[in-house]
Design a binder for these strands. Structure first.
Lengths: 152, 152
DNA sequence: TATTGTTATACTCTATAACTATA
DNA sequence: TATAGTTATAGAGTATAACAATA
């Protein structure tokens, strides 16, 4: 081990978080949308049609990047572009029925994989993870606010 | 919310894990190596020179994919290829001093970002996260073994 | 024959710069 | 002028198929 030995909380969290992240990326097979695409489908499903610019900001990809992603999703019939009646420069992106179904399938698949992993864990470990979820969620929120507050 | 409301442990973990994963990907700026590259640099730093095939298996990328990654890392002077004296088909990849330094800088940067996030958390939440780390590590391990056992 | 690694090729995802149309 | 979105182009990252050299 050549790394500065971890005493700070961040140093302790880092290796575990890295492993979990790598895991998540592995579950993401070619049959399921990328994490950014999933975030877009989720937002459109939960909150209705949205602007390209807003989706780009939400997922922190560039505006052209979002145009391109929407193009791929539209080609796959997962979303649809409709003109924005209030601003003729813009478009509204809305999720299709196929998009909603894929989002659902993705969610079920991921949850099933995670459930399988929990089955390998002792009851104590399972409980410890579940009990920490609210704190972990707030940690994630702190991270999301880290840049969106100061920057932009 | 159109998603099947989560009662299983996997369903509860999924949204939190997704947010943490997205966060990790955001911290990974263009100034730092990708997660696969980081895993390679870490392995070479911790355990000495390694074969392309072993690095590919470790990180679960294809053998050509690893050849290409090593090519990019070598061009950036982060690793170096040396002939394997024991098997003339193979090469040994070893990390350079610049590679070690970058790995260290990456580690420090990530840990610092996570520390910043912890500072936004209440002491109770911080403790809850830290206490859950061993269980989370075992969960990650269960995931890593999920495919490596049965498959391959 | 099997294994190690590479080359050839293609596809996804993402970025920056330059552009068009509307406000 | 500023904003919304697109097009053009380039690069990282990854895969499969075909190949060369060695075991």
């Amino acid at each position: 081990m050549q790394i500065p030995e971890g005493e700070s909380r961040g140093s302790q969290l880092l290796p575990v978080l890295s492993r979990l992240g790598r895991l998540l990326r592995e579950i993401e097979g070619p049959d399921y949308p990328s994490s950014v695409a999933t975030a877009v489908l989720r937002k459109l499903t939960d909150e209705g049609p949205g602007r390209v610019t807003d989706l780009a900001r939400l997922t922190r990809v560039s505006q052209p990047g979002m145009t391109q992603l929407i193009g791929r999703l539209e080609k796959a019939d997962l979303v649809r572009r409709v003109p924005d009646p209030d601003d003729r420069r813009g478009v509204l992106v809305e999720v299709t029925e196929a998009g909603r179904k894929l989002l659902n399938r993705t969610y079920v698949h991921y949850a099933a994989v995670l459930d399988e992993m929990f089955e390998q864990l002792s009851p104590d470990d399972s409980d410890a993870v579940i009990r920490a979820l609210p704190a972990l969620a707030r940690l994630a929120q702190a991270g999301e606010e880290r840049r969106s507050g100061p920057a932009r």
